[in-house]
Design a binder for these strands. Structure first.
Lengths: 177, 177
DNA sequence: GGCATACTGGAATAGTTGTTCCAAATTTAC
DNA sequence: GTAAATTTGGAACAACTATTCCAGTATGCC
């Protein structure tokens, strides 16, 4: 649900959701069980679809550098075209729900490990093929790019200047060598 | 107020603040005016003290690389020792209040510009002294490091592994050359 | 046509919310 | 000791909150 993504869990009321979805509150409770369960489902869906998209991007682009470039450019484009600046649902949920929900924190840790694995594996592929010439390990490079990606999703909420964001991306990707 | 920092604006009630501060609710309203005004004051205080600390760090450390190393190491140490994982008040507020508050978004933009200026100026100092040998501009490098810093404050809420965080920092700082 | 299922708008529950008011108590200044 | 200022705990206000209940309506199936 875009409302949870845009406003977060606490600032979104069930009444907001009812108005936004256009269905009855009793049906909502029958179908989903409650506010927290509804949020969990929306969040799980987001994680699943964004993870699948990332996997597909990394598998579809043989050039690792191009792949990362595409990833970051997509993040910039999303930021630019997102009028309401909702950013990344995962990043938003990380800052809102940690601390406060051990269950959510655990869920985020599992998701983070999964995405990091994708990043590190993709960098390893570039090192193996010789496309990446850095002397650093795949883990170091992959984790750095993952962290930078998170950072971009935060700063682009405040300042959507594509030129500046592209500068950051170019500088960041330069560590690949 | 640490409660706003830890739980955010929406998840913190006036009742929470009254219990936490141990003063009467009427006094709170007399002194601060209201929940939003109270949040604004706490946030302004945080921005002021963290900005001053950063300025002091950059002015006190002649070696720019050492300065950045110290900055990131402090962020890691804060993450490690912060049991309740409240992260960075500015990053938390960015993700919670944007969108939703134009006033807050403006305030964040101003603050971001100030901190970026500190980062870029410090990198410029390193380039001028020859300590930094990268062919990239101070702006590119400074903005990258600033964005990475934001990213670290997010990911360290989920996973406080100092070794991994240090890897990220080392990889990130390697762009300075 | 009858029955089961699902959805509806309204009402209700119990509690919380931000904020204001008030008489009483405490503190401060002289 | 006294007056003024400040703070206090309780109460109140109006609205909102998550959640449940209900009679009526619509839909699908046999």
């Amino acid at each position: 649900m875009e409302l949870f993504w845009e406003k977060g869990f606490h600032a979104t009321s069930m009444q907001d959701l009812v108005s936004h979805l256009g269905i009855n509150r009793a049906s909502l409770y029958d179908t989903y069980g409650g506010k927290e369960a509804l949020f969990d489902k929306a969040f799980a869906y987001y994680k699943k679809t964004s993870g699948a998209w990332l996997e597909e991007l990394f598998q579809g682009e043989a050039s690792v550098k191009q792949g990362f470039q595409k990833l970051f450019e997509t993040a910039i484009q999303e930021a630019v075209s997102d009028n309401c600046r909702k950013g990344c649902f995962v990043v938003n949920t990380t800052t809102e729900m940690v601390p406060g929900s051990d269950k959510m924190q655990h869920s985020l840790m599992v998701h983070k490990a999964q995405i990091e694995k994708l990043f590190v594996g993709y960098v390893q592929k570039g090192l193996n093929s010789g496309e990446i010439t850095s002397s650093k390990s795949a883990e170091e490079l992959g984790l750095m790019l993952y962290t930078l990606y998170n950072g971009i999703r935060v700063v682009s909420k405040v300042d959507v200047n594509p030129k500046k964001l592209q500068m950051v991306v170019d500088a960041g990707l330069s560590i690949l060598g």
